[in-house]
Design a protein around this nucleic acid. Structure first.
Lengths: 317, 317
DNA sequence: CCCTTTATGCTCAAAATGAGCATTTGTGAG
DNA sequence: CTCACAAATGCTCATTTTGAGCATAAAGGG
């Protein structure tokens, strides 16, 4: 029993908290769609995937990774158009292992390497912080209804309707921010995503509703967003995105950026307080535009003993 | 930029609810350690990993899979002793993609294929349903304390102590059932797991405290247990393990088997009721040894609309 | 010094949890 | 045919945890 060889690529979704929105690290490719930091896994050079990943990211984006976790391994044939500089999938299958990396401060990136891009330029329908995004009622929902009606049998129409309803919260269903990946995949299969037309080598049927990425990289980012939005609730991962000290308002801002909707300020603080995750430093941050805010610090120790849970996400209406 | 080839293996952790404890499907290998259903991923034959996986499982264990999700991709060099019939890792690196599969009824397995084994034969320290397992105080905790003291510097001792405390709930810390993988890895690195000695080709230092498995398969099972114990709380996955109709007591029994501790019966039911996941069928199951119990059915529809959360786990004291 | 802007504090009702006690309804022994 | 027993269900009550607002404090700019 011998195992046929396949090529393994490593992709990193590096995230940081930007000024107004979460950011993802991309590598521009002059004229072409931007890509995630990406590189082959070479078993001769790298004892582990993570080592290889860190090497590629620092080489391509001039950037050192901190917190890293494995996301998912993507390997379906036909899931992507291969990047130009890789062998096409007819010859050897390429599978890619996606990683999520979190890093504090979106600030200093040496030039010539990667760039920070706002998540929501790639996923505008995911940002509900200022209410329901106009793109949903304006473009996505009508297109989804058209896609539902296009199905051949009533059974298929019902299946499409159910899927669209539950992922996009149509017809009064609730919006579940964690289902970002499901939404991306639905938009892909209904042809609303530029990558879908590109992969099928068709003319694009829809005006681009958002920015696209190389290969299946946008799918990997959607996977990362779903994972992060879920994980933030049961593991204190937000703090990987914060600098050493921060105000509670800033922390809340970062969480809101991630989950994509506004939180109730007082309740957010009360719940945070109970977790014991943060402690005041006594120092204040002036020039907040109002009353100065105290600077807080993350207490890494609390992770060690007791149940490490995440932070509460009290939605505000 | 070309990608060096590696070999990809697919492993399935197939789980079912047994009479008294959850079971995992293993393939006996006459005399040697049992293995998970395992097979190479052949990109020429299989369009997706899942298709390949289902094929291997049905071939090796004579068994059709239902619910399947990807777990993790394992690829560290030296993480395992290779299976005898595979090329050794010096030549080509073998990475394995682990999958978790859930299936109702541990009952009918055609003979000659796989066997159902109780989880807790491989992880006896994880079963707290009848109180704290004796193996913890009897063997594991003393060995951990020895391992802590063996460290060379005080700093390392402190690090080991912290790690042991938080994973095994030493010194009054809480036991977190989701950290099954962390515990396995700690036992592995502290030499309490037979596989550790085997992989380093050492004589075994400890009397085997539990059964071992081929290669790194026990680590994969630990990953699956951790995942399932976490997921059960925020997604209604237990029902994948239940037959069409079941009593509430049986459902509770299955959940208790998974999380590894007893639940408060009334509160479990109250919380379950609120979710709307189950509905009574009106039919009763007699011969329960007491008052007959009503048979319930899982309402798959609730998943479609609204927030699909998991079921509550009200620990009983 | 008043007004605007943030940061923090506090209160109250509603909902969810944690723990028990109480009833119902089969089975099986005497 | 009764009665004790074993489960399955039903209900109650004190605590906690949420969800929503209202109120107060402290800078900075006319």
């Amino acid at each position: 029993m011998s195992i046929p060889p396949v090529a393994v690529g490593l992709n990193a979704v590096v995230m940081a908290a930007g000024e107004d929105a979460p950011q993802v690290l991309v590598v521009p490719r002059g004229g072409e769609e931007p890509a995630l930091p990406f590189g082959p896994f070479d078993p001769a050079r790298h004892r582990t995937f993570e080592i290889g990943l860190r090497e590629w990211v620092s080489e391509q984006a001039h950037f050192q990774l901190g917190y890293v976790e494995q996301l998912y391994t993507f390997g379906d044939r036909g899931r992507e158009a291969p990047l130009a500089d890789l062998p096409s999938s007819d010859e050897a299958r390429i599978i890619s292992i996606g990683y999520l990396a979190l890093t504090p401060e979106a600030a200093e990136l040496p030039s010539g390497g990667g760039e920070w891009h706002n998540w929501y330029h790639y996923f505008p329908w995911e940002d509900w912080r200022a209410g329901k995004p106009a793109i949903l009622e304006g473009q996505i929902e009508p297109a989804l209804r058209r896609w539902i009606d296009e199905a051949e049998t009533e059974g298929r129409r019902a299946a499409r309707r159910d899927r669209a309803r539950s992922t996009f919260g149509l017809d009064g269903r609730a919006w579940n921010e964690e289902r970002c990946l499901d939404r991306y995949e639905l938009l892909y299969s209904s042809g609303l995503i530029a990558e879908a037309a590109r992969d099928r080598k068709e003319a694009q049927g829809m005006p681009p509703v958002s920015r696209s990425m190389a290969s299946d990289h946008r799918r990997i980012v959607a996977t990362a967003i779903s994972r992060l939005r879920g994980k933030i609730k049961y593991r204190p991962v937000v703090f990987e995105l914060m600098p050493d000290t921060f105000t509670l308002s800033r922390l809340q801002q970062v969480v809101e950026g991630i989950v994509g909707f506004p939180l109730h300020k007082q309740n957010f603080r009360r719940a945070l307080d109970r977790t014991g995750f943060v402690e005041g430093t006594g120092r204040m941050l002036a020039r907040t535009g109002g009353r100065p805010a105290e600077l807080f610090r993350y207490r890494r120790e609390v992770l060690r003993d007791g149940q490490a849970t995440g932070i509460a996400i009290p939605r505000s209406r």
